[in-house]
Design a protein around this nucleic acid. Structure first.
Lengths: 358, 358
DNA sequence: CCTCCTCGTGGAATCGATTACACGGAGGAT
DNA sequence: ATCCTCCGTGTAATCGATTCCACGAGGAGG
């Protein structure tokens, strides 16, 4: 592979001139520039990014460590991150942690070894020493979706509180009173927050959230299945199960179906994270949709700010409820909502979206 | 960030000794090694992969350019590729081409600029000049899923011919005669091959594949929708639509539902590529499953062989039919299959898998 | 006791770029 | 005519590793 020396020789100039010509430096004569460009063309020369990175101490690469690639939410996030990064002249290296702290650590380490310019992380746990060290040492870093309390790093996430309130209002309006949740791992902020939001929303309606109705999941389909089986075995099973992510909802659907039961007739189902497939499941699943694209974009922008040495602000974008059929038939469109159904303290957020088929 | 010089100073040895100690070179005294290790520890030193790559001319990184990250088939492929690569001591940089040749070219270029050790590509088209040049120039390269005829590069893919025959047998057995296909882009091998296999299988039953029953898609949901609408507008619409990938099947489902029609009562649907969600759609979708994990593994192994300077063999693993309900109710398990249903020339391959819920 | 290996170590070249600094020549000002 | 400035260019240092080569010390063999 041709190097800058070969180009210099071919063009009959020094390597310095080649470098300057290629980087748009002003003081290069038009003649020299033309000869360099010609030489580049005949040799098919492409600058060696490795050498350049060594010298300039920047790789124009961002690292993204996500919790689980097989989760459509995260793949959409990854996609939008890559898109925005590309627009800003960066490449992205994705590391998939598969919800495993050891894998997360592995990726953070290799990414740091590669001297990426900045790191986007959706932490699976409290954070490995290596990650915390990097954050303290000043490596530009931004948390996406999930974060680690007490670490001074901007957080880009979506706020689901209002949407969860809307969901509970919706369920309550449908007459459901025994509501259960499949929680995410307590080590993650999203795992905890969604339970808290749910409990809070229930409290507003005077509904309890007994421990038996809090199932411990790990954001994977298998745990959704197991927890749901547990719920169904209860003497008094819940009327609706709210899964804290889409994969666990899928598992719940499995479990219900395996018992020969039907959604929503026998038990209702709702999920955090909306994904295209939820429109086509049997039945279509009521879900809380995050503004994934915007999240990815905002995260990259915040990170690039940090790389430039500026602050980089935390962002929390609101999620919104998308009502489908998995919790029971919603009242036909146009029919009046029963007044008094919502407690005065918590008026529903403006117009939860109502979608059927796209 | 501490460099090898800092470690050398701290340990009171030369950089050469540090390098040797860290790379397990035999001729380093135990005492020196211990001092180096201690210095590494106190400084939190990690070797700079960029500098190392420049010197050794290898990055221990593989590039993977896939056609579309949002397609679950490709994300599973990416995952298994990363897994196998990690086991072999490589990192993977994923580039998402989004079925766009220009994006594919962009990623191939940046990957090559980064001097990755090898490239895994699932080409969206006939191949950009840059990619073909790289292949000719001897960059270790392997095609996955799709390939480019006439280029001397190993291909790792799955062979769907037998499964497509099984599918047609299944449809024919259900009494369907008017079968249509939503094809992938003609620029891709998978786009062409699946149509050919389908046509061939139909021919074995004396069934035609009129041009009106071949819809041109692009492996994205939108095209599946459009093509299906076209089919439904036909004076004599097909009884079953076979989508050449899972996204187009999703689009077809949309289109059918938008007309207020039902699957399989009004029209049947089958898809190439099986994905977890097909179990949960309404109805569950009959699909042809590829051994995605094995494909990813085989591809990485072939590529690593090439990097080592060896041949690296092409692989074609068989896909298999998974029957669900989207083409009509399969005969109840245990009931005799109607003899004479299958033409003698093409006995069905051994036992297509029959699955309901996992 | 001298010579020759072997072993551990350090010095320095090297990979391919960027960039500070020096230098020569042209042109303008005095 | 002389001097200064500015422009285009080249030389060489540098980034952080790896690795060839040389060197000194110590041990073995004659």
């Amino acid at each position: 592979m041709a190097s800058i020396k070969d180009v210099a020789a071919e063009a009959g100039v020094s390597v310095a001139t080649v470098s300057r010509a290629l980087n748009g430096h002003p003081s290069v004569s038009p003649a020299a520039r033309a000869r360099v460009l010609a030489a580049v063309d005949t040799l098919g020369y492409r600058p060696n990014a490795v050498a350049r990175s060594l010298r300039t101490d920047q790789t124009r690469t961002l690292g993204l460590v996500i919790s689980d690639v097989m989760n459509p939410y995260f793949t959409e996030l990854a996609r939008s991150v890559e898109e925005e990064a590309r627009a800003l002249g960066y490449s992205v290296i994705i590391g998939n942690a598969d919800e495993r702290p050891d894998l997360q650590d592995h990726h953070v380490t290799t990414l740091l070894d590669r001297r990426i310019d900045g790191l986007l992380v959706s932490p699976t746990d409290g954070g490995s020493p290596r990650m915390l060290d990097a954050a303290r040492a000043g490596t530009p870093m931004v948390f996406v979706d999930r974060w680690i309390p007490g670490v001074d790093v901007p957080v880009v996430r979506s706020d689901g509180r209002a949407a969860v309130r809307d969901l509970v209002a919706h369920l309550h309006g449908l007459g459901h009173r025994r509501l259960a949740i499949i929680a995410g791992p307590a080590a993650t902020t999203t795992g905890r927050e969604r339970v808290d939001a749910f409990r809070e929303a229930l409290a507003a309606y005077g509904l309890p959230l007994p421990d038996a109705y809090i199932g411990q999941g790990d954001f994977q389909a298998g745990s959704g299945r197991r927890v749901t089986e547990g719920f169904l075995d209860l003497p008094e099973p819940p009327e609706v199960v709210f899964a804290a992510d889409n994969l666990m909802a899928l598992g719940a659907l499995d479990a219900v179906r395996a018992r020969g039961l039907r959604v929503p007739e026998d038990i209702g189902l709702a999920a955090f994270d909306d994904i295209p497939w939820f429109v086509h499941t049997d039945p279509p699943v009521t879900a809380i949709a995050q503004p994934t694209r915007d999240l990815g974009r905002a995260a990259v922008r915040a990170l690039v700010e940090r790389i430039a040495g500026r602050a980089g602000e935390s962002v929390a974008l609101p999620a919104r409820l998308v009502v489908r059929r998995s919790c029971g038939e919603p009242p036909p469109a146009g029919s009046a909502e029963q007044p008094g159904e919502h407690p005065a303290e918590h008026p529903p957020s403006p117009s939860p979206v109502r979608r059927s088929t796209p």
